[in-house]
């Protein structure tokens, strides 16, 4: 299945608009909801790119679990209103410099993308069903998979230890 470019352009416009909304919003809850929209659009792009398993995981883990955690913490802290604030003394040059360097990075990315076009391949798309992904996870990638389980355990213990009342 070859995804249609017009649909991708439309999805890309929504994706960039929601990312800009995250960048510019003055309320942390709005920013979190923009990010949920961005992740949802990302899931649709994954579906177009023949990755149904990743699309569902994106919705359930990213747009579901991670963003619920974000919204929960924002409301728990009552920190949704973000003040613009003023620059600490001696750092007023940093914001224009950050924008200029980010523009430079963008230019470099575009240059590398268009200067080094990979050759066309005519391979058939792989079987990317959840069954194939699972067989790959528990076959050649079983050791990283187990390492990830230890990592999640460490993160869980770390979160409990950090937020415990002393």
């Amino acid at each position: 299945m070859n995804p249609d470019l017009p649909i991708l352009v439309l999805l890309g416009a929504v994706s960039i608009a929601s990312a800009l909304g995250l960048l510019l919003s003055r309320n942390a809850i709005y920013a979190a909801l923009f990010l949920v929209l961005n992740f949802g659009v990302g899931a649709v792009i994954y579906l177009l790119l023949n990755a149904p398993f990743i699309a569902v995981v994106q919705v359930s883990v990213y747009a579901g679990a991670i963003m619920v955690l974000f919204v929960f913490v924002i409301m728990l802290l009552g920190a949704e209103r973000l003040s613009p604030g003023e620059n600490p003394p001696g750092t007023s040059f940093q914001r224009p410099l950050a924008i200029a360097l980010s523009g430079l990075l963008m230019g470099l990315a575009i240059y590398v993308l268009f200067a080094r076009q990979p050759p066309a391949v005519a391979a058939p798309p792989p079987d990317s069903s959840p069954l194939a992904v699972g067989l790959s996870l528990f076959g050649p990638y079983v050791f990283p998979f187990e390492v990830v389980s230890v990592l999640l355990l460490v993160a869980m213990v770390g979160a409990v230890v950090l937020t415990r009342n002393r």
């Binding site: 990755a51 991670i66 790959s136 993160a155």
Partner: peptide, 22 residues
């Protein structure tokens, strides 16, 4: 036409979840 990229996305998501918790 390789599945390995999708497997890496799965690992990135797991690391992102751990990172968000901490």
């Amino acid at each position: 036409a390789q599945l390995d990229g999708q497997i890496f996305v799965f690992f990135v998501m797991a690391v992102a979840a751990a990172e968000v918790a901490v």
